[in-house]
Design a protein around this nucleic acid. Sequence first.
DNA 1: TGTAGCTTGCTGGTTAGCAAGCAAGGACTA
DNA 2: TAGTCCTTGCTTGCTAACCAGCAAGCTACA
Lengths: 238, 238
Amino acid sequence: MAPTAALAGRERVDKERSAARTKEAILDAALRLFAERGYEATSLQDVGALAGVSRGTPGYFFGSKEELYRAVLERGLERVRAAVRSGKERALASQEPPEVVLEGVVGEYFDFIVENPDFVRLVEWEALSGGRQIGTLPPHLEAAQEALGAIITELALEPGREAEARQLLLSLIGLCWFPVVHGPTVLRALGVDLSDPAFRAERRRHVIKLVLQGVRAELGGSSSSPLSMDSQHDRRDA
Amino acid sequence: MAPTAALAGRERVDKERSAARTKEAILDAALRLFAERGYEATSLQDVGALAGVSRGTPGYFFGSKEELYRAVLERGLERVRAAVRSGKERALASQEPPEVVLEGVVGEYFDFIVENPDFVRLVEWEALSGGRQIGTLPPHLEAAQEALGAIITELALEPGREAEARQLLLSLIGLCWFPVVHGPTVLRALGVDLSDPAFRAERRRHVIKLVLQGVRAELGGSSSSPLSMDSQHDRRDA
DNA sequence: TGTAGCTTGCTGGTTAGCAAGCAAGGACTA
DNA sequence: TAGTCCTTGCTTGCTAACCAGCAAGCTACA
């Protein structure tokens, strides 16, 4: 694929012809547009224009619009997987007690999500479209599973309580993603705005608080809720 | 689609010409398709076919595709507003202590959301598209504001703590909506499925637990968290 | 001179919206 | 009671725009 396979010289990084550089530019442009408008509403013409190439170039390098989309998704998921892995390793290596470690991890995750809205929006579009592409991508499963495993290890949960860890992880993700996606709808209806630093900090504290309360309930009680909840009378259990 | 081939005596009310009936059928079809595929990927031809009319009829009644979409959104929001209002009134009229009332309300909300995925998905599409249509619809604000007001009243919060109620409401919505939208992505990556009754019930209990813990923290402490949290050292506060 | 990188012309397919037309069934008239 | 309008409901033909993908061609560089 690369023309510079075994050739010497050519160390100029400037503006020479470079397929790799062009491909990256196309992936960047496509990520921004797919995240912003979704797959259907993004044309290869738009992608080319934003990447500074002609309308035909995205198709030339990626074969088809769908394959370009898959490449964008794959690169995004790979980045997330790397971030999750590094966060996990830092957390597991820490000497602090689980609660303190988790507080740091939750805050970091919140920051990561809020600072990478393109990724969240991309996955959200994908979810609404049925997850037909993301489902076949390998890094997809790994990030989530890895996070789940880390939580179980950190909390030293017995195997049986794994379901609780899964619920907690799900809640953490939902709590962090929600305001990123729903700025124009729910947040607006409530008169708040995630780009307001005060609200963002308030939200951050709130998410940490909720998740840590949930974790505490897990660590404290063994099987029943430690706070004397009698949530036994819920209907519709099948 | 010729007019009724029924020969004699068409006094029957079921198949007479009825603009109202046709419009409802078109709105129903459009809701399903917009919720499932999104605005861009839905053609008026599809809507007409699902509604049992020709490809021109949706345009005939609603003027344009965009106006049809607005009508679908508006009807959906109106229904939600009605549901929120009835839930609110039942809750405020109840004699139970706030915690019990809230537990019922949260469970009811969870059930409502899980049973009305079309509405959730419609709003989600709308959020991703920038909320350009929903932002101009009146019932949009009312449902959320009404819910917020009810929470404040029920908890008898001092005016200053209103921000906490907003955070709690946001979290409740996010916790309930998330699994409805992210079945194909996050839930799948974690190996669970909202259509599994066991998981659904487990999720329901978990959401109730988390939200009630959050409420309890509000009711208990006056300014600082009552559970001896020291979440004072979070960074990036702007 | 060859080839990778990139552009441009073309084609078939799809769509929203418009305009013209057709049918059904009251309302009005004789 | 029969005949005629005329409005409402709905369909179908047409058009201009857009788009993805293909193929042919151009260009810089080794």
